[in-house]
Amino acid sequence: DVVGDAVDVIASGPTAPDTTTFPEAIKVLKKYSLWDKTPQSIKEVLKDGERGILPETPKPRDRIFERVYNLIIGNNRNASLAACKTLANEGLNVTLLTSTLEGEARHVGTVLASICQEISISGNPIVKPAGIVVGGETTVTVTGKGLGGRNQELVLSAALKLQGLSGVALASLNTDGVDGPTDAAGALADGETVARAEAMGLSCEQHLSENDSYTLFSKLGDLIITGPTGTNVNDVAVMIVL
């Protein structure tokens, strides 16, 4: 569940060299104004490490790793390529744009929707009928008091950009089946999502500003609910343009 498959980060990298140091950990806590909120016991450990009283974690070229080999057997690229294969089997022209997507969910949603628009208008970067897959993991800067997850927020922002566009749909989900603190894996939207919401007295803009994508998609019946999948290789978004 790490974009880019950094072995020293996946599950905290128990079988990989640790490239970070005690001073770097202290620097990060201070950078984000968390040092004063950190329990004293943890601060003492970090300070002892900084002073050399405690040994650093094993680093690259440490002999302990001489006979260790780490192999990635499943990742986001695998999941994204599987999605591509499914779309191709449905007769769509398919492309995988990236399996390392990152960024603010609502901004990414707007970008993905604009790609759908471009394909619909000009056939670039792929001709219709098109299936576009994007993998990775976005983030959400929470400012509201609503309920949702990064995939649902991505789709909601995309819906605003897609409104009125026919023959286009976008879905995004977490491969572990749990998007944020909700029971949904993600959500889907098309060019009619905003109009359907307005017909029910719902404002997509308001729900987006409140980080309340789950509530809106729940009322629309457009949540993707899979239950826990037993795996976790980031998120996958699929766009279809007919």
Rank of each mutant, 00 (worst) to 15 (best):
K128M: 15
A130Y: 00
G131T: 02
G131H: 03
I132K: 05
I132T: 11
G135A: 12
E137W: 08
T138V: 14
V140C: 02
T141G: 15
T141V: 13
V142Y: 06
G144S: 03
K145S: 14
K145M: 14
R150I: 08
R150C: 06
N151S: 05
V155Q: 01
V155H: 05
S157H: 02
A158F: 00
A158D: 00
L160E: 13
L160Q: 12
K161I: 14
L162E: 02
Q163H: 12
Q163Y: 13
Q163P: 06
G164P: 07
S166F: 05
S166G: 11
G167A: 08
G167T: 04
V168K: 03
A171S: 12
A171M: 15
S172P: 08
S172V: 07
N174V: 09
N174T: 11
T175K: 07
T175F: 13
T175R: 07
D176R: 08
D179E: 02
P181I: 11
T182E: 06
D183I: 12
A184T: 03
A184F: 06
A184G: 04
A184S: 08
A185V: 06
A185M: 00
A185T: 03
A185E: 01
G186C: 07
A187T: 03
L188S: 14
L188P: 02
A189S: 00
D190Q: 00
D190V: 01
E192D: 13
T193W: 03
V194Q: 00
V194A: 04
A195H: 15
A195E: 15
R196P: 04
R196Y: 02
R196A: 06
A199P: 08
A199F: 06
G201T: 13
G201D: 04
L202G: 14
C204V: 11
E205W: 11
E205G: 09
Q206K: 11
Q206S: 11
Q206H: 14
H207C: 13
